[in-house]
Each structure stands twice: as structure tokens, then as C-alpha cells.
Design a protein around this nucleic acid. Structure first.
Length: 549
RNA sequence: GCGCAGUUAGCUCAGUUGGAUAGAGCGUUGGCCUCCGGAGCCAAAGGCCGCAAGUUCGAUUCUUGCACUGCGCGCCA
């Protein structure tokens, strides 16, 4: 980031000096091959397009001015069609260490979000059963996103939306009630198809009967209510516990029922009618979402008088903005993608700009064991639930796998692989890099090795050392990109690269047996900076950075 | 039928404002432990970036068409 900043500033000044407009498509990035230098700029290429001049000629002018512009720039080469390949002076590279030491846990943070209030809503699973592995992926992505956005300067809150008002909830109460009747020997009809058939429903019913043997003697309406309330609480306690085990925290648990009961949904519908966005037809109330590009208009209140899920969802999002959030990110299962256009239409109708609402889609997780698919929707699989999977592979490994793919692509989660400690399972590779650095620090302290105070940073000149410095310098940009594109996998990929570079350097650059204590000390500080950066990145993923393994 | 995603090495996947010789891990083959942690390192082989057109100095990236895979298309939630 530092290097990019400097070069951007210098080039912008030069372009302005020449009386040219900074091209919109100007980009500065690390070249694919490090033999091209530290950073490559395409300024001459895009300026040539804008001005109609020869790109290599322009590059020559820019390069000459750039060479004279700063002592930090060691070399500027012109390559290919007109790239400017810039190499920085070693002292400038080496200064990254002091910067990282100074910034510490904040190295890589930014003010991209400028303090704007952001809400990330995720998991929000219907409380009709325990969380499964797919929810785990959503939880990992949502939680990591919160950490990344917070790091990038957004005032971020995590929220769980509880769908406790709809038909599914009545079904939950009914399912428990019927199981209770069965257990009490008062019912022998087949269990209805449309009720929840999971084992956990029977457990809940049994538990209720244990506490209240007279449950099934009560009138049905009363019994159903009791079953619903008890089941909701029981399942929610389980969900909260599962999320806790996964180190996922929500700041707010928002109840759909509270919206309905407070009249907020009705008020929202009235407002939509008043503004002409909603209309009556065929005895139902419709929302004109087609005005905003949806395929068809959507029903808000059915002709039987009941509300659709969409109706309360509009009220819910209105409530989010009313609570002062400038921006909202919903993390949804990819099977809900068809819902996005109407939700966008709703947000637009609420008078919010396009940037105020984003959806991160999370694709399905395919749970495998040794390459064999495990069914998740039935109760046949032993590892059906998130809790079971966590107990089997651990939270760190699971999170890293979830966060090492972009969210919008399918993910095979193979229990055998995730348990293995190989590069098929890179969390250990990254954690091992951190543990190794900590081990070196311990060893150096024990054996009275070189101290940081003895370091002469300018001795860091080996290829591996410069490679590490280059990579460390890139982290702030990676963290920023991850925030800007809501892409946690940028972080995990960067960490794998940094860990790989560390392992490579580790093999050839001893601290204790360095040529001098000044060099050993410098390497110690370099390793310290790598360790700090690894910790910062792992923290953004919610994965631990162990001192030993 | 319409819509949304995906298609990159044997396998699992990176690669966003169009750029240089398309990357990583696993797997395969061959090397490295008197030396701070071998959960590691080094090297080699492995590619019509789904197919075909178009846009231009340049396309894995943008446009269009086609193929295959997954998902979605209700006065369900």
C-alpha cells in the first residue's frame, strides 16, 4: 500500500505537470513476475489511448520524470507495449518493518468505510431445527465480512433475523404437539408429511412431557402455543450455542414477530399504498416491483388477508434504515437469488440509493466423507449438523475452508480432507507459519540470540527477504479490496501466499546462525512483521494464530 | 420456456475496472533432516482458460450466440 500510494502520487503529479488528465483506467499493481520490478503502471498505455500518442514514447517521458521524482525509486523500466516497471530502493522496502511494528494489530486497517454505519445480516436460519453445514458457511462468511468491514472503517453491526411469525412456526408447534401426543399414547395416526420429522422434535416433546406430564391433557390451542414457545426457545438456544462454538457473534437478534405485532408491517403497506407503489387487485395487495426491473409484480397481502414473507421483509429493511444504517449487506443462500430483484425494488421504493443494499450469495455446501456424498436433508448422516461437523474437524479448519473459496461457487466439504493436516487443508500451513515464527522467537530468547535492538535492517537484501517485504507491503491493499468487494477469500489466499513465502525464507535464512548479530536481529524483526501480518489476516477470518501447534 | 450463477492443469480452486511467458495446492516423478519446528523446502512434467463469432494495438477478462452443470421462476416461507 505504501509503495502503491507513493507511486500513485508521483505519477499523478507528473501527469498533471504534463497538462494531461489522469486516465480513469490507470492502474498500478504488482507485476505477474517479480523480475519486472516491484510495481507496474499502465499509465502510458491508457494515456496513449486518450491522447492518440505513441505509448512507448509517452512511457519514455513518464519514466524519465519518474526517475528524477523521488530518492525512493531505484529504477524505472519500459517494457512490452509501454508498461512502466518500477523498482524501489531497498531502504524504502525495508521501512515496511518499522511501519508494521508501529501499526501492530492495526496494520492493514483503513478508512475506506469512513465511519459509515453498516449492518451485515447473516445466518438468519428459521428456528425450526439445528444449524447444518450450509448455515456454517453463511456464518463464517458473514462473521468474517463483519471483521473485514470493521477493519476497513465501517461501523459494523452483525444481525440475525428471526423468522418467528410465519406458517413454519405454527408447523413447528404442531409437530412438537403431535409428537407429545404420540409419546403420551394418545395418538397413533401416521405423522403428517408436512410436519418436521427430525429426531430433535421428539426430543423436545419428551423434554416437555418430563417437565409437564399434564401437557397433553390441556386444550389443543393452549398446548400448541406452549409447544411453539418452548420449541422456539429450545431450538434457538441450540442455534446460539452452535454459533458460539463457531466463534460467531451477532450484535442484534431481530424478531419478525415484533415487527408484525408493533404494526410496523401494516404501516409500511399503508405508506406504499399512499405513494402509489402498491395497489389492490383480485382481492390482494400488490407491490409494483416491475417498475424497478422485476419480472412481475409481487403480492404483499394475500386475498385471504394474511401477509406474505415479502411484506414483512420490506418492513424489516425499512426498519434497518430507520435505525440509521447507511448500508446493509444481506448474506443469503444462493437459492434465494430470484428474490434479489424484488428486494432491490423494495429498497428503491424506500428511497434508498443502489449502494445502500447488497446481497452476498452463498452457494451450497456439498458434505462429503472420503469422496462419498453424505445426505444432509435426511437424518441418515451422522454429521448432519454444524455442531457435529465442528466436533469432528474443529472450527479453525472449517472456517478456513469456507473462506478460501469465493462465496458464490459451490463448495465440496470433505470431512476426511478437512481433518487431514496437508496442503489440501491449508489452514495448518498458515498456522504453522505463525507457530514457526513464534518458535524462533522463543529459541532466540532462550539462547541469547540477536535482539531486535541489535538489528541493522539495511542488511536485508537476500531475494527471499525482499520477497517477504514486497508481500508484507501488499497486505493493506488486500484487506481493502476484500472489504470493497465483500470477498473474504482474498484474505485467505493472501495468507497462503505469505505463509508459503515464509516457509521458503525460513529454510535458508537463519536468525541464530546468521553471519552477524546485526543481520540476525534484522531477520528477527522481519519475521516479527510477518507474524504480525499473519495474525492480522487470520483475525479477519476468525481463525486462531497459535504460538505452537 | 424465461432468469441467475458456473465451465481455467489428472483433482480442488485463484485470477474485477481488457495487458507482458495464465497461477497455487493436491496428485505424479526426482531431490533435501550432524543446522532456530519435515504439519516444511527445492526441482520437473502437466493448459485450444467449455465451443464459435464480434469489439481493438491487445480478450481467461467485454458483447452476442451455442453447449453442458447447478439453482430459481407461487396470492410458499
Amino acid at each position: 500500500m505504501r509503495a502503491v500510494h507513493l507511486l500513485t502520487k508521483l505519477l499523478d503529479e507528473i501527469v498533471a505537470d504534463l497538462g494531461l488528465q489522469k486516465p480513469a483506467k490507470a492502474v498500478i499493481e504488482p507485476p505477474k513476475d517479480k523480475k519486472f520490478g516491484d510495481l507496474a503502471a499502465n499509465y502510458a498505455l491508457v494515456l496513449a489511448k486518450d491522447t492518440g500518442k505513441n505509448p512507448r514514447e509517452l512511457a519514455g517521458i513518464l519514466a524519465e520524470k519518474l526517475r528524477a521524482s523521488s530518492p525512493h525509486i531505484a529504477a524505472v523500466d519500459i517494457a512490452g507495449p509501454g508498461f512502466l516497471n518500477v523498482t524501489f530502493a531497498p531502504a524504502f522496502r525495508q521501512a515496511a518493518i518499522a511501519l508494521i511494528e508501529e501499526d501492530g494489530d492495526a496494520y492493514g486497517s483503513s478508512d475506506l468505510g469512513a465511519g459509515k454505519k453498516l449492518q451485515v445480516e447473516f445466518v438468519s436460519a428459521n428456528p425450526t431445527g439445528p444449524l447444518h453445514i450450509g448455515h456454517g458457511r453463511g456464518a463464517a462468511i458473514g462473521d468474517s465480512l463483519c471483521r473485514i468491514m470493521r477493519y476497513a472503517g465501517y461501523a459494523t453491526e452483525a444481525e440475525y433475523y428471526i423468522n418467528d411469525a410465519g406458517k413454519q412456526m405454527r408447523t413447528l408447534g404442531l409437530s412438537i404437539w403431535l409428537r407429545a401426543l404420540e409419546l403420551a399414547g394418545k395418538r397413533s395416526d401416521p405423522f403428517p408429511e408436512d410436519c418436521y420429522k427430525g429426531e430433535y422434535i421428539i426430543d423436545i416433546a419428551r423434554e416437555m412431557l418430563g417437565k409437564d406430564p399434564g401437557l397433553t391433557d390441556r386444550p389443543e390451542a393452549e398446548g400448541l402455543d406452549a409447544c411453539y414457545e418452548y420449541g422456539l426457545k429450545d431450538i434457538f438456544d441450540g442455534i446460539k450455542k452452535d454459533l458460539e462454538t463457531f466463534d460467531v457473534r451477532h450484535d442484534e437478534w431481530f424478531s419478525e414477530r415484533s415487527l408484525v405485532e408493533s404494526g410496523a408491517v401494516e404501516r409500511t403497506l399503508e405508506a406504499l399504498k399512499a405513494s402509489g407503489k402498491a395497489f389492490e387487485q383480485d382481492g390482494a395487495l400488490w407491490f409494483r416491483t416491475t417498475e424497478q426491473g422485476d419480472d412481475k409484480d409481487r403480492v404483499l397481502r394475500k386475498s385471504d388477508g394474511t401477509l406474505t414473507y415479502f411484506a414483512s421483509d420490506i418492513a424489516y429493511h425499512a426498519d434497518k434504515y430507520a435505525r440509521g444504517f447507511d448500508r446493509v449487506i444481506d448474506v443469503w443462500g444462493a437459492d434465494h437469488h430470484g428474490y434479489i430483484p424484488r428486494m432491490r425494488a423494495a429498497v428503491a421504493a424506500l428511497g434508498k440509493e443502489r449502494e445502500a443494499f447488497d446481497v452476498v450469495l452463498v452457494q451450497l455446501v456439498n458434505l462429503l466423507q472420503g469422496g462419498e456424498q453424505i445426505a444432509m436433508s435426511t437424518r441418515a448422516g451422522k454429521f448432519e449438523t454444524l455442531a457435529d461437523v465442528m466436533a469432528e474437524v474443529g472450527a479453525d479448519a472449517a472456517r478456513f475452508i469456507f473462506l478460501s473459496r469465493k462465496s458464490d461457487s459451490k463448495l465440496d466439504f470433505d470431512l476426511e480432507l478437512v481433518k487431514q493436516r496437508t496442503m489440501d487443508n491449508p489452514v495448518y500451513y498458515v498456522q504453522y507459519a505463525h507457530a514457526r515464527i513464534e518458535a524462533v522467537k522463543r529459541r532466540v530468547a532462550e539462547q541469547n540470540g540477536p535482539a531486535p535492538e541489535e538489528a541493522d535492517i539495511s542488511l536485508l537484501a537476500a531475494e527471499e527477504e525482499m520477497d517477504l517485504l514486497r508481500l508484507l507491503d501488499r497486505f493493506p491493499q488486500v484487506a481493502r479490496d476484500a472489504a470493497a468487494l465483500a470477498a473474504p477469500h482474498f484474505i485467505s489466499h493472501y495468507l497462503m501466499e505469505l505463509a508459503g513465502m515464509l516457509h521458503r525464507a525460513y529454510a535458508v535464512l537463519p536468525v541464530l546462525n546468521a553471519e552477524s548479530r546485526a543481520l540476525g536481529g534484522a531477520r528477527l524483526r522481519l519475521l516479527g512483521a510477518v507474524g504480525q501480518t499473519l495474525r492480522n489476516g487470520l483475525r479477519l477470518l476468525g481463525v486462531s494464530a497459535p504460538a505452537s501447534m
